[in-house]
Design a protein around this nucleic acid. Structure first.
Lengths: 223, 223
DNA sequence: CGACTGCTTGAGAGTACTCAAGTACTGTGG
DNA sequence: CCACAGTACTTGAGTACTCTCAAGCAGTCG
């Protein structure tokens, strides 16, 4: 990991509400830039939760390990996403970069020194926490009540919507997907093959795909 | 549902930090008391998220329905728990009372009229959202990576810890438990029988149990 | 080109599900 | 007080889906 910016200096000017900077600007102004290469750890399970991050470019995976080695991927974060939001003093999950990734990190405990900017950021963090809660609940529904095809279809739909574009490049391995969906790597592979055979999606190599039958994909995702 | 208190009146006194009232007091002061009988709906899926609730007595189940009838119980709330916390303007889940239940409801949009009390409550809501996020993540891990016995053991451990006491009375049906754990009612029943046969727990009727071998239960719950 | 890692495919096994029957608990009416 | 109905729960047998283990294939890097 490399720091590419100096420690931030307090910024406590008054902003008229309509000129309040975007979340991205807030992080760039109040945070520290960091870069990580593929598979590098951003923070560890058990580390203090003082820093909050925003993905500038690249993508990130949050994971938890059970004592017997089973792994669960709690989520993926892409460009523009905030992560590291936890109320507990210690991280319950670790996060790692999936590919070369740049983030801005803000020290939570320092927010009160940033005046209005800090308050604004705090509100943003709250909102992001709420949004994450609702995402996690959706994922819970998927894990509790959906079969393998539906899970994989849901995943492809999600990521296509999140990353946009005609063709989508998957930044994560099959193992990551499996651990995210509560399946095995073989089952994920089989379902991907099945969806491709059925003409729902089309793959170009194993990391790049495009949706060919959005309606059929949507019917699998249901809700 | 019955209202048993008048609409609250603004309370904007100054509280020294150390005299700040507890969450319970805050809800009683700023909220409206409501009572629900068993299986009565507290709010519906799709309803506005303006109200936030706190359980005074009884217990509550939050559930979501898939279009094909599959149901997922998102969580249970017991005495002292806050629920209804969502950032989205509309509830993604409905909540129902499991038994005769009393709650206090606070109108979120009214908080800014309550001065310091309101700000304090907002902070409480934020913290509660964070705590719920971490609980939901634990549950996600359970759903993604644990087998039937481990799920049921985890559930019993959770509820015993939450409700306390030697003997624990389950306020929910087997169907509720199954929909919460992503299992069928028959599997839940079989696992409960198995745990009882193995001497891990003991049942008195089908709604009242006690933990007989905490260590063995803990080893099943793992983490 | 060869080794390595990541992905796919196949065969067989196991866990949880489905369907079906039976038992226990609760409340109602005789 | 007991019989009955209704609901909730348990148990059993057979099935299906996903997992495990094993082998083969593809893309990448030195």
């Amino acid at each position: 990991m490399t720091l590419t910016a100096a420690q931030p200096s307090p910024v406590a000017r008054l902003y008229p509400a309509e000129l309040m900077p975007s979340v991205g600007e807030l992080f760039e102004r109040a945070g520290v830039a960091m870069t990580f290469c593929a598979d590098e750890e951003i923070y560890a399970q058990g580390e203090a939760t003082d820093l909050v991050y925003r993905v500038t470019s690249g993508s990130v995976r949050a994971a938890r390990l059970l004592s017997d080695g089973r792994r669960q991927v709690a989520g993926f974060y892409y460009q523009g996403d905030l992560f590291g939001l936890e109320t507990a003093p210690i991280h319950r999950a670790c996060t790692e970069a999936l590919c070369d990734t740049r983030v801005f990190a803000v020290r939570r405990s320092a927010l009160r020194h940033y005046g209005e900017l800090g308050e604004h950021l705090e509100r943003m963090l709250w909102r992001a926490t709420g949004e994450e809660l609702s995402q996690v609940r959706d994922h819970m529904l998927l894990l509790a009540r959906k079969n393998a095809v539906e899970r994989v279809a849901g995943f492809l739909d999600d990521i296509a919507q999140r990353l946009g574009g005609d063709w989508v490049d998957l930044p994560m391995t099959r193992q990551d997907i499996a651990d995210y969906l509560g399946l095995t790597i073989e089952t994920v592979s089989r379902m991907l093959t099945q969806l491709q055979v059925e003409g729902v999606v089309q793959f170009q190599g194993c990391r790049r795909f495009r949706i060919r039958a959005p309606a059929r994909l949507a019917s699998l995702v249901a809700a």
